[in-house]
């Protein structure tokens, strides 16, 4: 596999087109109050990569310590958009502790400059971003939705 193919693995290119979890977001205040009525804690985070203008807004719903729903809207390169798509598949249904542990593993792998092989057992489809870690300029792209998740999660806990 060439470096470029390892960066743009088929699964990444597919997710960048399929965009799982992508939606037109309803007003946040509405979602928050509707969620509160049904025992859901809802929060969202908007992240921008200023070097290329990639944007992701990720909305997280938490019920009794479990990630019950993830929706997002955004625009950007295939890496950032695929990452958001894979994030929703990967984290939905996990406990917040599990989600945090997975996020830490993902971040550590991405920052390793190719030194840490992604663990498919832990990361699932997100392991496809292993090739990104050899492209320091693209790590931010892959991290963007995950940073949004982290920020939104903290916000649900502060409510």
């Amino acid at each position: 596999m060439s470096d470029l193919q390892s960066l743009y693995q088929t699964i990444i290119l597919e997710h960048s087109k399929e965009r799982h979890g992508a939606a037109t977001l309803t007003p946040l205040a509405e979602a928050v109050s509707r969620g509160a009525a049904t025992g859901l804690s809802v929060a969202e985070s908007h992240q921008i990569n200023t070097t290329c203008g990639d944007e992701v807004t990720l909305r997280v719903s938490i019920a009794a310590g479990t990630v019950t729903d993830l929706v997002w809207s955004g625009e950007g390169c295939s890496i950032s958009q695929a990452s958001a798509s894979i994030l929703t598949d990967t984290l939905r249904g996990l406990s917040t502790d599990e989600a945090r542990a997975l996020l830490d593993n993902f971040r550590e792998m991405l920052r390793s400059r190719g030194k840490i092989e992604p663990d498919e057992e832990i990361l699932g489809d997100a392991a496809a971003f292993g090739g990104v870690s050899r492209y320091p300029a693209r790590v931010k792209c892959a991290m963007l939705p995950w940073v949004a998740f982290e920020a939104a999660l903290i916000e649900t806990e502060s409510r």
């Binding site: 060439s2 470096d3 470029l4 960066l7 743009y8 290329c52 990639d54 950007g76 390169c77 295939s78 890496i79 958009q81 492209y135 693209r138 792209c141």
Partner: peptide, 13 residues
């Protein structure tokens, strides 16, 4: 259908 960042990455390769 291809973001500029991806175009630039392909060309850089």
């Amino acid at each position: 259908g291809v973001h500029a960042h991806d175009v630039g990455q392909f060309l850089d390769d």
